[in-house]
């Protein structure tokens, strides 16, 4: 069993993911006014609109004028992730992450962790482009119609129907075909947040001094290409593809990884206790 320190962010992420879903369920089933709707569009405390900016981008691609309320909500969400949290939606909010993390654990437990069936991680950017093109051609927000993310959060809040098949497909794809196949290779929503979160403030910061080049961070990372500096130089993760999930921080036995700000240099002293 791993110590609590080694899964502390995982626990926190699950709490945030499940907590957000729970509030949506409560909003629909019992009329709680904390969070109503779902991750596509919602109302926070019955007043503040929030919306999925990628979904709105697709709506705009159909040639539809996006109404002011949704635009404001999308702007707030986009600003939060672009300026502060980076691609944290994928690691901290998205419920599909629970399934794909589980798939990754299953792979690792089966010793399949690094057996590669290769697929380019750039496919997702093509899928992102396709989402917008298909939206324009068919006049509907194209990814929202097939999204396993939408199928799952809508399903939990409003009734699952056959939506579980999409989630099961993603899980099996990740277990049997490509490691982190969906979130790390295909999902256009992840691609969107990768682009949008490129310049965010909160970053994983590496300090070379403590690093023993054991590579556990890279083994644990769902987007290992974002850690080219490990063991070579100090610095914050530069790529927007990092989901700020904190797995590298949990994996590092030397405290060479931590959450910090983009602007921060490496820590002056060795912080054994890592806080976020």
């Amino acid at each position: 069993m791993p110590g609590i320190r080694e899964i502390r962010y995982r626990i926190l992420r699950r709490l945030v993911q499940v907590g957000a879903l729970f509030l949506f369920v409560a909003g629909n089933a019992w009329g709680w006014k904390v969070l109503q709707g779902n991750f596509s569009s919602s109302l926070l405390f019955g007043a503040l609109p929030l919306a999925d900016p990628f979904s709105l981008l697709q709506v705009a691609a159909t040639g539809t004028m996006v109404a002011a309320k949704a635009l404001l909500g999308g702007g707030i969400v986009l600003l939060f992730f672009a300026a502060i949290a980076g691609r944290a939606f994928c690691g901290w909010i998205c419920p599909v992450n629970i399934a794909t993390d589980l798939a990754d654990s299953v792979r690792t437990a089966a010793g399949e962790g690094n057996r590669p069936l290769r697929m380019s991680r750039n496919i997702r950017y093509w899928v992102l482009g396709l989402s917008l093109i298909l939206s324009a051609v068919f006049g509907v927000a194209a990814f929202e119609w097939i999204s396993p993310v939408g199928a799952l959060h809508r399903g939990v809040v409003f009734g699952m129907g056959m939506g579980w098949t999409a989630v099961a497909a993603v899980f099996l794809f990740d277990v049997f075909m490509v490691r982190n196949g969906f979130c790390g290779h295909l999902c256009p929503l992840g691609a969107f947040y990768s682009l949008a979160g490129r310049w965010s403030l909160v970053r994983v910061v590496h300090s070379k001094e403590q690093c023993t080049s054991c590579m556990r961070c890279i083994e644990s990372c769902p987007e290992p290409q974002v850690l080219p500096m490990v063991g070579k130089r100090d610095g914050a993760v530069a790529s927007g593809e990092c989901t700020n999930c904190g797995r590298c921080i949990e994996a590092c036995p030397e405290g060479a990884m931590r959450f910090g700000l983009r602007t921060q240099g490496p820590p002056k002293k060795v912080p054994k206790e890592v806080t976020s």
Partner: peptide, 11 residues
């Protein structure tokens, strides 16, 4: 085209 499937109306 416009509906984002958020379910606010349903809630």
């Amino acid at each position: 085209a416009a509906c984002t499937k958020c379910g606010l109306c349903v809630a």
